[in-house]
Design a protein around this nucleic acid. Structure first.
Ligand SMILES: [Mn+2]
Ligand SMILES: [Mn+2]
Ligand SMILES: [Zn+2]
Ligand SMILES: [Zn+2]
Lengths: 140, 140
DNA sequence: AACGTTATTGTAAAAACTTGCAACAAGGAA
DNA sequence: TTCCTTGTTGCAAGTTTTTACAATAACGTT
């Protein structure tokens, strides 16, 4: 299924417009692997749509996040990277070497429900980055 | 207890130097409330030590984090803010209005132990920001 | 197909953050 | 106190991210 046919209807039905910039960016997120920096997205999407500019990339990524199509993640250096919003999961980044692993969302499921009931906040669905020390960086 | 007498020995014993810049920044973190942006820290600490520069603030904040004296937190806008590393806790930020509440660390304690045993990573001690929708922003 | 509304984009400039490097100064040794 | 080593800083220039606003173009309507 193409990006356009999959994402266009849900955006249009909310009053948003389908632009080649948005389609190019969605296409990049869909066909590249994990977390991409805004700069990565810009450089890749520019190949499809050369007039694309960086402010549009930043705005579009935030737009996709607001609409549930993408998720931001904190990289080891504190900057944000983005990825399509499929399959809940989380990350642990090593404070020593920056190595990164995934954490199953099932491990956090009960925490989320507990936080929702104790805080009154709803729809907690973060894509969280934890920090720790990987096996290789642990001292003997 | 003053900032100097409390923090200086542990920094000096690791081979680091005590500078008026570092003391001014620690003093600001200690006597201001919650999360401060690098800019906030710069402006406040400058009053104590006018020759302070912004690169030094950024470098010092990261230095304090590396040495366990401060913690970074992701603000609602994706930027980092800093706070002294006392009392483990976490945050939930409202995606609607940006309102923010604290979460007791005890709610995450068992998750941390579970992540450490399943991943092999140790010393997971993040100061996490979750995102959700606060009671006021929930639609009827 | 032509029009009008208004969401979206590009441009230019600002603000936030990072980096390289020479000058400086903390603190141990003489 | 003076000297030396080297961790830290300021400076200047880069890179990344945000903002304001006028120009553009998506798309429903005629
Ligand atoms: Mn991820
Ligand atoms: Mn906090
Ligand atoms: Zn590691
Ligand atoms: Zn709210």
């Amino acid at each position: 299924m193409s990006c356009a046919s999959e994402y266009a209807p849900q955006l249009r039905s909310r009053g948003y417009r389908i632009t080649p910039q948005r389609m190019a960016i969605l296409h990049v997120l869909r066909h590249s692997g994990e977390h991409l920096s805004p700069r990565d997205v810009y450089q890749k999407a520019k190949k499809d749509f050369p007039r694309l500019t960086e402010p549009t990339v930043y705005r579009t990524l935030e737009f996709l996040v607001r609409n549930g199509l993408a998720r931001p993640a904190q990289a080891g250096n504190g900057r944000l990277r983005y990825q399509l919003a499929t399959g809940d999961h989380h990350h642990i980044v090593c404070r020593g070497c920056g190595d990164e692993i995934e954490v199953e969302h099932s491990l956090l499921e009960s925490l989320y429900r507990k936080m929702e009931s104790t805080s009154g906040y709803k729809r907690i669905d973060s894509h969280v980055t934890f920090f720790g020390v990987c096996p290789e960086c642990q001292q003997p």
